[in-house]
Amino acid sequence: MRVSEAIIQIQHLSKTFGGGEDAVHALEDISLEIQQGEIFGIIGLSGAGKSTLVRCMNLLERPTAGTVLVDGQDLTSLSEKELRLARRKITMIFQGFNLLMQRTCLKNVCFPMEIAGVPSAQAKKRAGELLELVGLGEKAAAYPAQLSGGQKQRVAIARALATEPKVLLCDEATSALDPTTTVSILGLLKELNHRLGVTVVVITHQMSVIEEICSRVAILDGGSVAEMGEVQEIFSNPTTDAARRLVYPGGVSAVQMPESARVVRISFNGGTAYDPLIASLAIDCGVKVNILGADTRNVGGKAVGTMLLGLPAHPSEAAKALSYIRAQKNITVEEVPDYHE
């Protein structure tokens, strides 16, 4: 199987809840492809339609229009029975874990195999192995009520892997966990993706989650895809408002009002940090610029971020500074036409 093969293809998907005047257009004309073996992120603010989108991927929610192809199979054309079979290959974990509280951990992991008709002894053996895999081998006989949140999510992950899925959908899987536990669960997902080759779709409203494990990301805003691409690309140079709101939740704040006429946004796409740039601007061309705001972060081990610079009022000095910045590697410059605030 080629790595670049699309495992999920969504074409012109729309979902409308209700009808008439109360109709909610949760998703509008979404098209996207998720590649076999990748970790794909879907990020958006609350109400953007993330859960609806992910629930359309296993048809827990039936799309109003469009098609959902999983592993080449058009889910929207399947009968209920065929759909139940298809769902064994595209499993899901949730923010609320959704474990069966009256069953032991082992029995929880056995559950999907029980449904699939796997003989009990075989299911138990595999469930034990899966619990080992997620690091909870010794909790087989414990009930979910006796576990911490992180442990519960590990059991849920083991359960989701029981039917050897090709895709693992994670709807806010770490949103109920503390930062340390979040990192360990994300680490586990990454490891499983690596070891088992399972494609992982991560739904979140947290930037940090996407940065931590995703290779590609789609930004969902008001029910449509605002931007989609490599995580590093999108985060280092967000071009839409929706993307900027997510990447810089606090907004790029103005430190000081510029006397300057022109404001530019420069983006660091990995490579050196920004501090030396301002210093060298002053040293190399004798131009002083105002830093109006800055936000940098670490994506995949590289420094990315943006900075708003107020150029000197004098046109020739401004041009000099601009051409100096343009000459730098890994930096893109974009003029901000109507800067105020």
Partner: peptide
């Protein structure tokens, strides 16, 4: 919990299986 039923549906449970293997045992 509706979420648990949803999880069961996502795992490919039929309505009958949801009643007999999820709802009744969980509400015991």
């Amino acid at each position: 919990d509706r979420g648990v039923i949803e999880a069961a549906q996502a795992m490919g449970c039929s309505p009958w299986q949801i009643v007999t293997k999820v709802m009744l045992p969980e509400c015991r």
